[in-house]
Nucleic acid binder design. Sequence first.
RNA 1: CGGGGUGUAGCGCAGUCUGGUUUAGCGCGCAGCGUUCGGGACGCUGAGGUCGGAGGUUCGAAUCCUCUCACCCCGACCA
Length: 561
Amino acid sequence: MKLTEYFLPTLISDPKEADTISHKLMQRAGLIDKTSSGIYSFLPIGLSVLRNVESIVKEEMNRIGAMELLMPTLTPSSLWKETGRWTEYGDDMFRVKDRKGSEFGLSPTHEEIICDIVRGRVRSYKKLPLAFYQIQTKFRDEPRPRAGIIRGREFLMKDAYSFHATEEDAERAYKRFFDAYCRIFDRCGFSYIIVEAETGLIGGSFSHEFIALSDSGEDTVFVCPKCGYSASLDRAEIGIRDLEPASDGEPKEVYTPGLTSVQDVAKFLKADPVQLIKTLIYKADSEFVAAVILGTDELAEKKLKKVLGCKELKLAKKEAIVEATGTPVGFSGPIGLKLKMIADNSIKGRKNLVVGGNKMDTHITGVSSGRDFEPDLFADIKIAKNNDPCKKCEGRLEEKRGIELGHTFKLGTKYSQAMNLVFLDEEGKEHFIIMGCYGIGVSRIVATIIEQNCDERGIIWPKALAPFDAILININPEDFGLTNLSDEIYSVLEKEGIKVLYDDRIESPGKKFADADLIGIPWQIIVGKKATKENIELCERKTKNKEFVKLDELIGRISRE
RNA sequence: CGGGGUGUAGCGCAGUCUGGUUUAGCGCGCAGCGUUCGGGACGCUGAGGUCGGAGGUUCGAAUCCUCUCACCCCGACCA
């Protein structure tokens, strides 16, 4: 491709609205153009990369026997109503009406649609298992799109669905998808971790998130550098902390007028906030419970939910707290509380604590756990912090930011029950089909690659994903000698099937080098005054290493591995 | 949805507080001509704007007032 005939609108300065590195570079290097908030066009060079990502994804999906299909974006409300997600999705789903007034949703995901395809057509165990995938545009009306295409309202996703007769088979498929995901992210050259995750609106029994580490990421994860343990913020298991021990004190009521926050109380009593105890009142399904944690911690609701085994867990409302404990908000404490009490295990054996007095404007100092109150259960119910001890080894957890690239779910029968997907086994008995679903944010991958592969000059594409293999820079297209040589190199490379972008523009060398570095094509072939067929300059974008090769060596040097 | 911020040429900005000297400027980019040609060259000439939109105040509005729309960031929420 000759650059004079190509559409590559590069920018010298960062666009004002972008502040993550990948967003800036995608706009500056002419990969994308914003149409509206969270909605982007892929320009030619951006689309090349997107297609390269797609082909890696497709190859790995095909390799594990998943069949590609394509489902519609516009989907009738009736299907969503079957599973209840027409309501559950709320404002996150874009909705439209047809001319007759029938309601449709722009699909944010496709469980309902694939189930509708499969049900009725698969009635026998003999037709199972099945696995399908598609690469398709998804719509989600995000409350806050951000960071360019990292969180868009319209984005490209690979979603896959598998159907099984048995749990064991579903788990085997889960493993196959899991391994395929690892291969995909390895081939893209990502540095990533895999964490156990929550299933959210998709539902199901368990799931894993594939998270690329990046400071621009929106997810917080914890990694143990020693044993490799990794988990998301609200699930990371923490070992026992080695807190400064305190000696026993005498319980004493103190008057703390209007002081409800840990900070205020600690300041007022001149106490270390770690000696304070927070007592949070939650409503677990229909029962009120008290969660007791250190003043310096935050409660991990998902952990507490798991400990309680309840379906719904919500912080109790102000009036409900008064009703359940007889105490206004901010003065609840563990002593004499008549609710089920779960305490974080870092409270076990702690002494000389400050707790709420279960009385207006009152706290109690000098309290010891075990002596003055005994929770029903000790458990890990706090959110992890940087440098917390690892539960699996003696290491320390490190807090990192990441971008979620993939998510695998073992769904079980959530959708097959709602949509009546049944099959007959060998004995003619009816069962619900067991499902799995597996997603990858394809467009998000493109941004994430840039996050992990760039320098101050611009993008550095991994060779497997680059929009072109090489950029051929003719330093002076008005010089016949240089142009003849450049033309010859260009036609030789093209003939060999090497994708080359030929910078034949009449521009200053500085601009050409700057653009080449910005768009990040792995190899730069530079044709300047000293160049001959026997002495062609080849520069690697990533390292900026220069070497001089003969024309017939060039192909071998830059062909894809 | 709560908090903060921004809308002036393709991009980045000044001008707004204190209305009039602006025919609305500057840099980059763009077009033409010439000189350059190994790290975002230089000179000359030129094109490009209903100052986000609507209404209002005023002799006069980019500037003041009211409403509104769009976009960005933090949070909440979510893949």
